[in-house]
């Protein structure tokens, strides 16, 4: 379980001015949950994510990973093993010359026995569907493939939590779909806890919980249904609805009455065929 308690953070600009990027943030994430965090640019999502594995140490408040305090220096390596991080730019997190070397990098760091590495790497690569590309260098991979192997590189270390900061924002639609499918599968099959930061609303609809951030504050928190029901609130902070929901709104405006509010294409189809 991840607990974030009264977390504050500010970036110091110079001696007098500073920007408050997190303001009394409180979050609880249970093992096995799929949590999405949304919010427009500069709302503090990345700052929050970096607190989860000690890339930023809490200035005020506390982050607890399975009751281990991130604020205490000597915990940092244990926490980085527990919480894996995937970043936005697929190129800038690829350390090795090939996929297998990149996957080995994290294992080398944690002192994993050399003779067992290959097994772990194959296991992780297969999880993300990259098992046949182990010897490929990054510049011969698509964006989606690079990002999937970045996820694999983190999985090889067997973390308990997986945090992804806009992993799909530099990918084409196909790559985006691949990555999201891998994440959903990991969550369903392996009960991996996933914390996904994204600005694509359609990626959010499958999560157990959605957290909406604005100016360093959590403004909404709940299931996708609950969150996207607050249409005025979302519009106020410039967030869109998922595509299916937008379409449903447009149809409603045309005078069509639906039973339920929908978020996914499948649900919308389900609603529409029952109309007539």
């Amino acid at each position: 379980m991840i607990k974030i308690i009264d977390l504050d953070h500010e970036y110091r600009k110079d001696n007098n001015t500073s920007i408050k990027t997190l303001n009394k943030v409180n979050i609880e994430i249970k093992k096995g949950e799929f949590v999405s965090i949304i919010g427009h640019n500069g709302s503090g999502k990345s700052t929050l994510a970096k607190h989860l594995n000690g890339l930023i140490i809490p200035q005020k408040g506390e982050v607890l990973i399975d009751d281990i305090k991130v604020s205490e220096d000597h915990n940092i390596w244990e926490i980085r093993r527990k919480v894996g991080m995937v970043f936005q730019n697929p190129d800038n997190q690829f350390v090795g010359g090939t996929i297998e070397e990149d996957m080995a990098f994290g294992l080398e760091n944690i002192g994993f026995p050399s003779k067992d590495m290959m097994g772990r790497i194959e296991y992780a690569a297969n999880k993300v569907g990259m098992g046949n590309f182990l010897k490929r260098p990054p510049h011969k991979l698509s964006g989606g493939q690079k990002q999937r192997s970045a996820i694999g590189s983190v999985l090889a270390m067997e973390p308990d939590y997986l945090v992804l900061d806009e992993p799909t924002s530099m990918l084409d639609p196909k790559g985006r779909k691949e990555v999201i499918e891998v994440l959903r599968e990991l969550n369903k099959k392996d009960k991996m806890t996933i914390i996904l930061i994204t600005h694509f609303m359609d990626e959010v609809v499958y999560s157990d919980k959605v957290i909406v951030m604005d100016m360093g504050n959590i403004v909404l928190q709940g299931t996708p249904k609950e969150v996207f029901h607050n249409k005025e609130m979302l519009a106020q902070i410039n967030l869109e609805l998922p595509k299916a929901a937008i379409l449903q709104e447009l149809l409603k405006a045309k005078g069509i009455n639906f039973k339920d509010e929908v978020l996914t294409k499948e649900d919308l189809v389900e609603e529409i065929w029952q109309l007539f």
């Binding site: 890339l55 894996g84 994290g106 294992l107 760091n109 994993f112 050399s114």
Partner: peptide
């Protein structure tokens, strides 16, 4: 920018120099 982000990614994956490090090959 790349260097900055790479350093962050390396740290996030537990890199801390060669102390306690094993070798893949």
């Amino acid at each position: 920018t790349r260097a900055d982000e790479l350093a962050m990614a390396m740290e996030a994956r537990g890199y801390r120099g060669d102390e306690g490090r094993t070798k893949f090959k």
